[in-house]
Design a protein around this nucleic acid. Structure first.
Length: 830
DNA sequence: AATGGTTCGTTTTTT
DNA sequence: ACGAACCATT
């Protein structure tokens, strides 16, 4: 991102005064010390949650620098998110100061962009290639699916996209896939065609998609060993964070980089006039002998926190590290410095239900701490109210909002929380929700920039063609494309000949205007002949594009109230370009686009402190908070229902839950609701199987599932049962095997009256009371008057739905209109 | 080509 | 429930 392009080489002795290493080793436990100081070809640090992983990694790097075992330029540290990379850089800098400059600390993707940028011309790309995000890819694939009529075989763009992505993550291309696929199947043939065409289009557009960034770098290294050697010679220490989340392509990349240097051309290799590694002072003259051992590899990870298998992460990369690197040293960090013992005990208990895992038990010397607080709401709003109340209580007790976080499994769950938080005046922010860079107006603005930076990118040019409205539709677009093809020029260049397109004068003028604006912007951002654009070029160029194209005027003239927000977003984007000018004065428009493409919103560094953070459990990884609320702990949510069919799905869900739990330092709250509106329909929710894996003595139920309703056999089976009575019967002991149906309702003998033997309640021995609620077949009709425990008296206006899903629409005298599930609402007829 | 109405599917997670 | 995407109408 903003690393200095040419590493500073400090002469020996210029290290900060008193450059001893003691401060780097101070306060480490024996295992951590080992992890920081071990020297060898391969080191695996198995770092449990909260075990000081980042600290170990940064100190390890700092020690290498401090002791002059490595020059900054010889270090490559890889993380998964920009945020993690930024934090690591900052912490290393804090330890060694300027000596940190010149290190590569970046994500897999940005490291690969840097490499590809330098080598692009070796294999048919130019330096100004652009990066397609998943939205761009999908748009392209959508077009191709149509062109190839692949939809006739039931291919949706999304399905094709995910298949291609999976294949690329396994380093397959269309040809290699075709070789092993069943090509007598016409559907397969079409898929291969689309795949191959997609790749051709990318190349034609001088673009890489996210997966290509990794995959093509591997390809580059394999196809051009002498190029690979350059990087192998350069990077002597490679460190990879979150190793459990690497996929096959990333794994291959690491392997390529840590391979021994074969020898041969030892002279510094210059690419495009840019010298990309400086003579290496640590190996004497830096020229002489060619062969060198592979770089030292350090990987850090925790297989219990592997939660990205769904996108190709292969847990075996870490679990079989010792097989891959027979000389590897393994260090296990089990002491947790984050959470209290109660929280860790719960986490340990949950994760121990995953089989085929290496046993690892986190422990803490912080003492037991507070009990985990459990709550079962009647609805998701009820649950949210509990969270809001609890947040306020903690706040009053002195905990800052910024130290609290609420987690959920799916983004859609944030809605109920938001509503209640707003009503309760709890300040909050949603992390990683709607993405700034995915907003239409932002993508439009970026497409303008791409049209300038990489005119080969036809998709970008087509995108802006009629934005703002210029009266250019399908017909005109096709005419331009045809002209381009006939004259063997690009789509972009065709815009320079508006008079020859056979169009009316209005359209000609519109196209000429667009062409002129793009040119003018090009002059600013990519000045010809060696001139260097000023740092502010991107900001100026973007402003010009948005203004002279009429884009902003169109928004200003609009009376759609949303367009005001869109204008603000564009202003924000311009502010981003100004920041960019400040942070990377040498950065070009191409650099800016790459940075933007690789930045996720979860990387948002402006840690707006002082507000409660709401996020998914995935986003929560790597973070920690004093107080954590894990919400929606229900079957079909966590574990999510679609995980049930995927191999390893339920186990991954358990790890996700584990990640959520282990984010908490002092206070952990676990909550669920008995009913949840999903897909617009209210349904009965069941407590998650994971809940029951937590020893009951650790949880203080403010309101246990048994308190809210009993869900006697018939009703929940009607709604939720996957199979009729599995007869898992007694569901005896505490936490045993995984994934059984212990919460599945059992066939119960019909009991008289109101007290069926509860199912859930047996399983929650720490329930507070034995209140039970099941209205059975309560007859209720429009016009009846009822009394509700909370809302008081009211009149039934209508009954909808059937069976267990019967809903009463009630107008309460005091509380207004409500919809209630007849079966379980705390109501009685009067 | 733009607008409005309807259907549809969508709700795991991210570089 | 909600938004995107598709379709039919002007």
């Amino acid at each position: 991102m903003s690393e200095a392009p040419s590493p500073v080489i400090l002469p020996p002795g210029s290290a900060p005064a008193g450059a001893g290493s003691d401060d780097l080793l101070a306060g480490l436990n024996p295992q951590q010390l080992d992890a920081v100081t071990y020297r060898g070809q391969a080191l695996l640090i198995v770092a449990g949650a909260g075990s000081g992983k980042t600290s170990v990694l940064t100190r390890r790097i700092a020690l290498l620098l401090r002791r002059r075992e490595a020059w900054p330029s010889q270090i490559l540290a890889i993380t998964f998110t920009n945020k993690a990379a930024a934090e690591m850089r900052e912490r290393v800098e804090r330890l060694v100061g300027d000596a940190a400059r010149g290190m590569w600390i970046s994500t897999f993707h940005s490291a690969c962009v840097r490499i590809l940028r330098r080598e692009a011309e070796q294999f048919g790309f130019t330096k100004s290639f652009t990066i397609y995000d998943s939205g761009d890819s999908r748009a392209l694939i959508k077009r191709l699916v149509k062109d190839h009529e692949a939809d006739a075989f039931g291919f949706t763009p999304a399905a094709v996209q995910s298949r291609i992505s999976k294949l690329k993550n396994e380093l397959q291309d269309a040809e290699s896939y075709a070789r092993q696929a069943n090509m007598s199947d016409p559907a397969e043939r079409v898929f291969v065609e689309v795949f191959a065409d997609y790749q051709r289009q990318l190349q034609k557009a001088n673009a890489f998609d996210f997966d290509d960034l990794i995959g093509q770098t591997v390809y580059l290294f394999r196809a051009f060993p002498q190029i690979a050697d350059v990087y192998r010679r350069r990077f002597r220490h490679i460190l990879v964070d979150e190793y459990q989340d690497t996929n096959a392509a990333q794994y291959a990349l690491i392997h390529e980089l840590t391979r021994p240097v074969q020898g041969g051309a030892p002279e510094p290799y210059a690419s495009n006039g840019m010298m990309i590694f400086e003579p290496d002072p640590s190996t004497g003259s830096g020229t002489a002998e060619g062969a060198e051992p592979g770089a030292a590899l350090t990987v850090v990870g925790d297989s219990d926190q592997s939660i990205y298998a769904f996108r190709g992460a292969d847990i075996r990369n870490i679990s079989e590290f010792e097989r891959d690197f027979p000389s590897a040293k393994v260090v296990l960090l089990e002491q947790n410095y984050r959470s209290t013992q109660n929280i860790l005990s719960a986490a340990n208990a949950v994760i121990s239900n995953n089989f085929d895992r290496k046993d690892k038990k986190l422990w803490s010397d912080k003492g037991a701490g507070h009990a985990i607080v459990g709550f079962t709401g009647y609805s998701q709003h009820d649950e949210a109210q509990f969270v809001a109340d609890e947040v306020e209580a903690l706040r009053r007790a002195g905990m800052p909002y910024g130290e609290m976080a609420v987690f959920y499994r799916t983004n859609s769950q944030s809605r109920a929380l938001e509503e209640i938080f707003i009503r309760s005046a709890v300040p909050y922010k949603i992390m990683g929700g709607t993405k700034f860079y995915e907003r239409a107006e932002i993508k439009d603005a970026l497409a303008y920039l791409v049209a300038v930076a990489n005119p080969a990118d036809e998709m970008a040019v087509r995108r802006i063609l009629n934005k703002p409205r210029r009266g250019i539709g399908d017909v005109t677009e096709t005419a331009i494309a045809r002209f381009a093809e006939e004259h063997g020029i690009s789509f972009r260049d065709a815009l320079a000949h508006p008079t020859q397109l056979g169009l009316g004068p209005k359209l000609q003028a519109a196209i000429a205007q667009l062409d002129a604006v793009l040119r003018e912007a090009t002059d600013i951002m990519l000045p010809a002949s060696g001139e260097i654009a000023p740092p502010t070029a991107v900001a100026e160029g973007l402003t010009l594009l948005l203004q002279k194209s009429g884009y902003m005027d169109a928004l200003r003239a609009s009376r759609d109230p949303q367009d005001e927000a869109r204008l603000e977003n564009l202003d924000e984007l311009i502010a981003v370009t100004r920041d960019f000018a400040r942070n990377s004065p040498e950065g070009t428009i191409v650099d800016f686009l790459a940075e933007v493409a690789l930045v996720a919103d979860s990387d948002d560094l402006d840690d707006e402190s002082g507000v409660v953070s709401l996020m998914t459990m995935h986003t929560a990884k790597g973070l920690e908070f004093d107080a954590v609320f894990v919400t929606g702990v229900e079957e079909d949510l966590i574990p999510h229902r679609i995980s049930a069919n995927e191999p390893g799905g339920p186990q991954e869900e358990r790890r996700l839950f584990y990640v959520g739990i282990t984010r908490a330092r002092k206070r952990l709250h676990i909550s669920l609701a008995m009913t949840r509106a999903q897909f617009g329909e209210v349904s009965v929710a069941m407590p998650s199987r994971f809940l029951q894996e937590i020893p009951s003595e650790l949880i203080d139920w403010r309101q246990s599932p048994g308190d809210v309703n009993s869900r006697g056999g018939t009703q929940s089976r009607a709604l939720n049962a996957r199979r009729p009575s599995t007869g898992s019967g007694t569901g005896s002991g505490s936490f045993g095997g995984s994934g059984s149906d212990r919460f599945a309702p059992r066939e119960l003998p019909r009991r008289d009256g109101l007290k069926p033997l509860s199912t859930a309640m047996d399983k929650f021995p720490n329930r507070v009371t034995a209140k039970v609620r099941d209205n059975g077949d309560l007859e209720l009709n429009a016009g009846d008057r009822i009394r509700h425990d909370d809302f008081g008296e009211g009149k039934v206006e209508a009954i909808t739905g059937e069976g267990a899903k019967r809903i009463a629409h009630v107008r309460f005298d005091a509380a207004g209109q409500k919809k209630l599930l007849v079966k379980i609402a705390p109501i009685e007829k009067i």
